[in-house]
């Protein structure tokens, strides 16, 4: 277990803090700007999630939909996504990058071809929103063979029995969805309750790095900082939307936001 993702979690643990994981959409609002954003926020972020946009995203709320829409309108294609990853990795070889998206794009590109492109560009992990367990079994084995972390998702509706099975087949990192919601929903569950569920998962296998996502903003992040990692996505997409409206330098504004988030969990 010496993936860059695992190393990053180990480092964070040594520093006794949660890992900060950001999510932005590749190509939002342009290809070059999204690369600039990655380069800038990687100073504060520990792991970067990069969305490859789909125009029918059934699990995303308004903020990420808007970012995806902007990116697609600007003509982003998968090959551009991989190019962005490659260029980012050239200047930040040790920073873990996780691609996140919907299965149809992988299906069309061909699983093996997609994974080859991941490997070539330096992708460290994959989150596929609509490829749940056990449907993802074969694909996750393929990922492992390429030393790419396939990140399983678990949610408040996941039964105990199912949770155990998912964790058993998971790689190093597991993503816990904090509540019943699409991305970008208001946190409607008490952080204490979320951490209770988190601990339940953690107790199944303490060696897994469990991150919490959905509904996490600068307002809610501090209350959850006991987790191994915390994902902020919609708030960053919203920040991009707002800074574009105000014609501000998106990378700069986003950098400030990510810095602020980081300060809240150290």
């Amino acid at each position: 277990m010496n993936s860059k993702i695992a190393k990053t979690f180990a480092n964070c643990k040594r520093e006794k803090r949660a890992a900060l994981i950001t999510y932005t959409v590749a190509g939002d609002n342009t290809k070059s700007n999204s690369l600039k954003i990655l380069n800038t926020i990687s100073k504060s972020a520990d792991i970067l999630e990069l969305g490859f946009p789909h125009n029918t995203p059934i699990a995303d709320g308004g903020q990420i939909q808007e970012s995806s829409h902007r990116a697609l309108k600007n003509g982003i294609k998968l090959k551009d996504v991989f190019k962005i990853v490659k260029e980012f990795k050239n200047s930040n070889p040790d920073k873990p990058l996780i691609l996140m998206g919907y299965f149809n794009l992988i299906y069309q590109s061909g699983e093996n071809n997609f994974l080859k492109n991941c490997k070539d560009s330096g992708v460290d992990g994959l989150i596929i929103v609509d490829l749940p367990y056990p449907e993802n079994k074969k694909f996750s084995i393929k990922c492992k063979k390429k030393s790419i972390d396939f990140i399983q998702l678990v949610s408040p509706t996941t039964s105990d029995e199912r949770m155990k099975k998912i964790l058993k087949d998971s790689h190093g990192m597991v993503y816990y969805i904090s509540m019943l919601s699409t991305t970008g929903g208001k946190l409607k569950v008490a952080p204490k309750k979320i951490l209770q569920n988190y601990n339940k998962i953690k107790n199944i296998n303490r060696s897994k790095n469990i991150v919490i996502g959905f509904g996490i903003t600068d307002k809610t992040i501090a209350a959850l900082k006991k987790a191994d990692g915390l994902v902020v996505g919609s708030q960053l997409c919203k920040t991009i939307t707002n800074s574009l409206k105000k014609r501000l330098n998106t990378a700069k504004v986003l950098n400030k936001m990510v810095y602020k988030l980081k300060k809240k969990i150290i």
């Binding site: 490829l131 367990y133 449907e135 998702l153 678990v154 509706t157 969805i177």
Partner: peptide, 19 residues
């Protein structure tokens, strides 16, 4: 896997909807 003819259908849904 809830697939017809091995190719069509299935349940490609977010984890939350599995239960």
């Amino acid at each position: 896997n809830f697939m017809y003819g091995g190719k069509f259908g299935g349940n490609f849904v977010p984890e939350t909807l599995k239960k």
